[in-house]
Amino acid sequence: MSSTTSEVWLPFPAEEIAGLPDSFRYRHWDGEDEFPADPAACVFYVTPYMKSPAVTVRPLALMPRLRIVQTLTAGIDHVLGGLSDLRPGVRLCNARGVHEASTAELALTLVLASLRGIPGMVRGQDREEWRGGFYEALADKSVLIVGYGAIGAAIEDRLAPFECAGITRVARSARTTGRGPVHAFTELPALLPEADVVILSTPLTEDTRGLAGAAFLARMKDGALLVNVSRGPVVDTKALLAELDGGRLCAALDVTDPEPLPAGHPLWHAPHVLITPHVGGSSSAFEPRAKRLLARQLTRFAAGEPVENTVLITE
């Protein structure tokens, strides 16, 4: 792919990304009101990071030459609404390989902090209260990972040294891995009652929207911990609030529905819940991995080679 008029839109300044091919004119756009140039010349669009769906898809209808849409997220739900504006054959690629380490770290942090009562201890420190006693450990707990893709596997990597009683894997379809079987979503009703910790790391699709609803939560064992590092709408917030208010379940949420969680929402003050503001991928690990991915993708694109991480091709 070589043309002096072909442009690439990047959310980082091009000079900050080592290894970019010189085949394109690079434009820096990270969701600002003003476009950096005429979108009609863009052939490769890297979406702004952590911007709203409305901002993300705004230029798509003005990009008739577009060949690649590259997200910097593992999920693609925030761009799907704009794909109908594109011509057939445009490839949508995700950021597989960018967020696994950071998101898995946070998932483990949420599990450990919740089990060991860290939020209460922090509040106690603010009040100069010594909150001793016995707390739950991750050791000897049974963990269920719902959504066993690259992030789910990275979460298991980090759970492995913690002497869990068992780790069970669930994905859209059953398969076998080097670590053991991956069960299908259809097996969840039988698996949920056995888990002490349930970690959601599945993409948001029409099949997973509301997956952790009232029936799902009701099958979790008393005192179990629900951890969500996927997308907020994977969990039915109303159903979760009922379980939290009743004191039967605990939760640790990096994502919520709605999001951002507005002031005054009852989830803020529900018992036994730890909330972080969707920072699973937002760490120092993000930027170097994202830039390496972009250099690799654009080098392949310039050479006419297939790009990586294609998850959808427009029709």
Rank of each mutant, 00 (worst) to 15 (best):
G264E: 07
V311F: 07
H265T: 06
T176P: 04
C164D: 00
T208I: 02
L83E: 01
P181R: 05
V146A: 02
P193N: 02
V57M: 06
T177V: 06
S201F: 01
A54H: 05
Y135T: 14
G132S: 13
D30V: 07
A290Q: 03
A137E: 15
E163V: 02
T109I: 08
W268I: 11
L294G: 14
E16M: 03
L211K: 06
E34T: 15
E16C: 01
E305K: 14
F162I: 08
L138V: 13
K291E: 01
W29H: 05
V55H: 09
T109L: 14
W130I: 14
T176G: 05
D85Y: 02
R65D: 10
M63D: 00
D38T: 12
R231I: 03
D38M: 04
L108S: 09
P48K: 11
A171Q: 10
I155E: 08
G132Q: 12
V234I: 13
S23G: 13
K291I: 00
T256D: 09
D140Y: 07
D196F: 02
R127L: 12
L188Y: 09
G133L: 15
F12I: 09
F162N: 14
V255T: 13
E287A: 12
V197M: 08
F216N: 14
H272T: 02
L244A: 11
V235R: 14
R289L: 15
A263R: 03
I155Y: 13
L112P: 06
P262A: 03
G117Q: 10
R169A: 07
F12Q: 06
T5W: 07
R158S: 08
L20I: 00
A174T: 08
T208W: 14
A218P: 01
G147H: 11
E7N: 10
I167L: 13
H78L: 09
P260M: 05
E206C: 01
Y148V: 12
V55A: 12
R96E: 14
S142T: 12
A251W: 10
H269Q: 13
T208H: 07
A54Y: 05
L225R: 05
V234R: 01
P64N: 08
M63Y: 01
V170F: 11
T186P: 05
T299N: 14
V279W: 07
E129D: 02
T73E: 05
D30I: 09
V227E: 03
E194K: 15
G210I: 03
C250A: 15
Y26M: 08
